[in-house]
Design a protein around this nucleic acid. Structure first.
Lengths: 158, 158
DNA sequence: ATAAAACCTTCCAGTTGCTGCAAGGTCAAC
DNA sequence: GTTGACCTTGCAGCAACTGGAAGGTTTTAT
């Protein structure tokens, strides 16, 4: 089959397939007389493996590692397990971070419901306040002071 | 203050600040005689706003939109709300996807505990099987057929 | 027979949000 | 006077593609 057919069967773009081949995640395809790539079921299997691993959030280099482990009968299973374990931990951390995010955003949303001008918007105000809080060193007044001090010290105005 | 001081106060890298300035998320800084950027408290406020929004998962272009809404007293608050609402929905979808992922990975992990060769690894086997399942059109036998057919006739589809 | 369409090829640029480097200028201290 | 810590610009690179240009090949419609 040609690249378009393979892409259709696997459910991805032809560009992705060429990219994977280039990155060494798929065996080089044979060519027709006119130079078109010709694929076999073996390639479809490889491609689906890569796409499936991608959908599990693995990076291409992790997938390459897995492929190498597959081809290496000597390696013990432990390395594979470890890779998966790292994925799980990573996902776990991401989920937690996202929950925190969701909570913050929900709070933010509740700051503003009415149809007031943006200048009065509780959300924007809240965002500004949070910004200020997250930098405890700064107040408008202190800023003025720093500015003046700088001007005084340099002894020039710009 | 100079860029290093601003970076320290805001808790980011100097490169990030220059990048934000370049992208129009921070007002252009003044310059000293020797060409160093000079910042004011106003810049720190802007920078913290951007960093805070980034930490909420907003893209730079969304943040730019927010800034424009801030400066535009005529705009109604509804647009701001809408933006936040989109964030929440996005996060929600991401969390759900991640939960599904976590479940899949956990299942995968449980396929293999023993110290067997990778060639016998339940995880790898499982990944291969899932790949095959996710492409219902393909079986090794069918692949052989396609191959032969191609050799016989060099046939084209569609 | 010819033209359009639907494939395919390679190469290169762009995406996002930075980070790091090279090569150089500036400034305060020892 | 020379370290060393700053700062400057500009460019390359990351991940994992996606899209486009410019062109070649094959099939199909007129």
């Amino acid at each position: 089959m040609l690249i378009g057919e393979l892409a259709k069967q696997a459910g991805c773009e032809t560009g992705t397939i060429r990219y994977y081949e280039q990155e060494g995640l798929l065996e080089k395809a044979g060519r027709t007389e006119s130079g078109y790539r010709r694929y076999t079921g073996r390639h479809l299997g490889q491609l689906n493996f890569v796409l499936h691993c991608r959908s599990l959030g693995m990076t291409l280099s992790e997938i390459k590692t897995l492929q190498n482990l597959q081809n290496d009968a000597i390696t013990s299973c432990a390395e594979v397990s470890e890779l998966i374990e790292r994925q799980i931990e990573r996902i776990h951390r991401q989920i937690e971070a996202m929950h925190a995010l969701e909570a913050q955003l929900t709070t933010l949303r509740n700051c503003c419901r009415e149809n007031v001008p943006a200048s009065e918007c509780g959300i924007l105000k809240s965002l500004l306040v949070s910004s200020a809080i997250s930098s405890p060193h700064w107040t408008p007044d202190a800023a003025e002071e720093v500015e003046s001090a700088e001007r005084r010290k340099k002894g020039r105005k710009k």
